[in-house]
Design a protein around this nucleic acid. Structure first.
Lengths: 331, 331
DNA sequence: AACTAAACTGAAATCGTTAACAATTCCATG
DNA sequence: CATGGAATTGTTAACGATTTCAGTTTAGTT
C-alpha cells in the first residue's frame, strides 16, 4: 500500500505538502498541487481511512438503525429507506444497517464509530437508544416517528392527515359504517393513524361503534384475524381501514375465505402503498407513505448537520397522498 | 474519551499491559488482568477502533454488495439477506450495504476498508467487481449466483433442481402444455431456472413449443406483459412457470384482467416463495429459495475465512423446496 | 539594493493502539 | 543463597495521516 510519504518522495516535497495538496488546502501553489495530484493518481494512491479517522476523529460511517430488522419491519420499508439513503450519500461514506434490538451494548455507539446516525423509528421503545445517541453528541436524525422532543431533528409523514383524507374519501363515497384494524400497540404510527380515522368520523358526525375497532399488529396474519372478526359481526361495517398494507392483504384474504366480495360487499383501504398494493386483486386503495423521500430528506439533513453542527433541530413533514384504486365502492 | 493510558495510570501499570490484559493475552497474570478489567469497566472504557484499525490493519467492517439496490433486486431478497447476516454477525463488526452499480471507483474497495466482502450476485456483470475484490485479497464470498471460478467461495441454491422438481409436479398433475416466463436476460438465475424447466420437459418427453417461451425481466410488469402474450395464443398452455414470484403476481394479474381463472383455466408456478406468495389469491404454488439460509451460510464461511485465510474455497449448495399451494390444478 | 509582507513549504508532534524487544520479578533448584 | 529459566511487565517504535508552528521563498516597496 502506498502512502503520502511515498508520493512525497517521488514529488520531491514533504509528506505534509502532499497531505495539504490532496485535501484542497489553499496554501499550496497550483503547480505543486497539480503535480502531486498527478503523481498520486499515477501511483493509485488511496488514503488510509483508519489513519485519517484517528487524527480527524471522523469515521466516515453513517449508521442506519431500524427498531428491529428481525421482525415487525416490513421489507418494502427497509428497502425503500436504504434506497433513499444510498441514493444521496456519497461514496466516501459507508452506510451500516442495524437493528436497535441487536445492539447489546450501548457503549458501542460512540462518536468515534459513527459520524452520524439515522434512526428509522417505529416504537417508543427506541427512545432509550435515541437518547443515548443524543447524549454521545453524535449528529442524529430520527425518521418516521414523531418525537415529543424538539431538540432532535425529526422527519415524519403526516400519517394522521393522510388517513383522515382517505376516510373522508370513503365517507364521500357513501360509507357510514367504518371500521379500523389498528397497528401494533405502542407504535406511534398506530395511534396517529387511528387518530386520523377518528378525526374523519368526528368531522363527519358519524357514530363510533366500539365493535369496529379491531386490534392488529401490522402483520398479515393479524389483518386476517381482525377481518375475520369484523366479518362475523351481525352488523358488518361497509368499509374497513387497515393501518398498513400488509394487514390489508391479510384482510383481503379473510374476505376471500369468507366469500365476501371486495369491494362489492365490503370496501378496504390500506396504508403505505407498498409495491404490491397495485397488484392485489382488486388493486388496493391506499395511502402512499413516501419512505424513500423521508429517507432522502433525513440523510440530507444529517449531512447538513455534519457540516454545520449548529443547525437548529427541526421537525419536517412529508406529505402522504391518497392512491385511489379499486377496493372502495360507492354506496 | 478515555484511553488505555488513562487506565494504565490508574492501575499503576504500563499501557502495554493494559492493552494485553484487555485483549486476552495469556502473558498477563490473572490478578493484574482482573484489576485492569475492573478499572476499565468502571471508567467506561471503549477502545478506539480507528487506532486499533490503523495498527492491526483490520477495519471491523463487512461489506454486503448487491448487484443493484436501486433496481432489479426484489425487496424480500434484500431484507432476507440482511436478516440472515445480522443474525450471525457479532456486534464488533459493522455491516455496510451497497449496490455494486453505485461503486464509482473500484479503488475505494481495498483491504484497509473491508475485512471481508459478501457479494449477493445476480448478474455476470458483477464479475468485474468480484475479480477486483479477489485481486485485492479481501476475503470474499459470493452468494446466490454460481461462479465458474473454483477459486472463489460460493454459496448458491440449486435453482435448476428446484425448478425441475416443480415442473415434474405439474406434469404429474397432468399438464402437457407448459410455458415459461423467463428471468432477466444475462442473469445466471434466469438461465439456470430455464434449464430446470427444460430438464423436466425433456425427461417427460414433452414437446418444446417455441411460443411457450416468453421473455421477462423479473419485474411484476414484465410478468403481466408476458402472461398477456401467452393468453392471446390460440393454443394456450395449461400451466405457466414464472421465473420469480414477482412475475407470477404480474401474471396472475394478467389472468384476472383477461378473466381467466387460476388455476381452473390456467395453472401458475412461481419461484422464491416471498412473503406474499402465501397471500395471493389463490395462494401461489412456488419454489422456496432460502435466501436467509444462503446468507447465514455465506457469512459463516466468510468469518471462517477471516480466521483461517487458508481455508480452501468451496462451492456450497443449499436446497430449494417445492411449496404446493393452490395455483396448480390437476387435469 | 534592502526590507518586508505574503506565499508557500517543512519539521515535528500527535491521535490511540499494538508489537518487537528489553527488562524485571518470581521461584524452584542445586 | 546464588542462579537460571519461566513468567510477567515495561520501553519504545511503529501505523499513516493531520496540524501547529516555524522556516524559507517570492514578490512588492521604497
Amino acid at each position: 500500500m502506498i502512502t503520502i510519504k511515498d508520493i512525497a518522495r517521488v514529488a520531491g516535497v514533504s509528506h505534509t505538502t502532499v497531505s495539504r495538496a490532496l485535501n484542497g488546502n489553499p496554501l499550496i501553489k497550483k503547480a505543486t498541487r497539480d503535480k502531486i495530484e498527478r503523481i498520486a493518481a499515477e501511483m493509485n494512491y488511496v488514503p488510509n481511512y483508519s489513519a485519517k479517522s484517528l487524527v480527524t476523529k471522523r469515521s466516515f460511517i453513517i449508521g442506519l438503525f431500524f427498531s428491529s430488522i428481525e421482525q415487525g419491519t416490513s421489507s418494502s420499508f427497509l428497502v425503500d429507506a436504504i434506497k433513499g439513503i444510498t441514493h444521496i450519500l456519497d461514496e466516501n461514506y459507508n452506510l451500516t444497517v442495524n437493528g436497535i434490538d441487536g445492539v447489546q451494548h450501548f457503549s458501542n455507539i460512540q462518536p468515534q464509530r459513527f459520524d452520524g446516525i439515522l434512526v428509522m423509528s417505529q416504537s417508543d421503545e427506541d427512545n432509550a437508544f435515541i437518547y443515548h445517541v443524543k447524549k454521545t453528541g453524535i449528529p442524529l436524525v430520527v425518521l418516521n416517528r414523531q418525537l415529543e422532543d424538539p431538540g432532535i431533528m425529526n422527519v415524519v409523514a403526516n400519517d394522521r392527515e393522510g388517513v383522515k383524507e382517505a376516510i373522508d374519501y370513503a365517507v364521500q363515497q357513501g360509507h357510514r359504517k367504518l371500521a379500523i384494524i389498528e397497528g401494533k400497540p405502542g407504535f406511534k404510527s398506530s395511534s396517529e393513524r387511528k387518530q386520523g380515522f377518528l378525526d374523519s368520523l368526528i368531522a363527519g358526525r358519524l357514530p363510533l361503534n366500539p365493535d369496529y375497532f379491531a386490534p392488529g399488529d401490522y402483520s398479515i396474519e393479524s389483518g386476517y384475524a381482525a377481518m375475520s372478526k369484523l366479518l362475523s359481526l351481525e352488523d358488518r361495517p361497509t368499509a374497513v381501514f387497515c393501518s398498513n398494507d400488509d394487514m390489508a392483504i391479510g384482510a383481503m384474504n379473510a374476505c376471500y375465505a369468507h366469500k365476501v366480495q371486495v369491494p362489492e360487499q365490503i370496501s378496504l383501504i390500506g396504508f403505505d402503498d407498498m409495491m404490491f398494493a397495485r397488484y392485489t386483486n382488486p388493486a388496493l386503495t391506499t395511502v402512499r407513505k413516501p419512505i424513500a423521500e423521508i429517507s432522502e430528506l433525513g440523510i440530507t439533513m444529517l449531512i447538513q448537520l455534519l457540516q454545520q453542527p449548529e443547525t437548529p433541530p427541526q421537525q419536517l413533514f412529508v406529505n402522504t397522498s391518497l392512491v385511489v384504486r379499486d377496493t372502495v365502492a360507492g354506496i
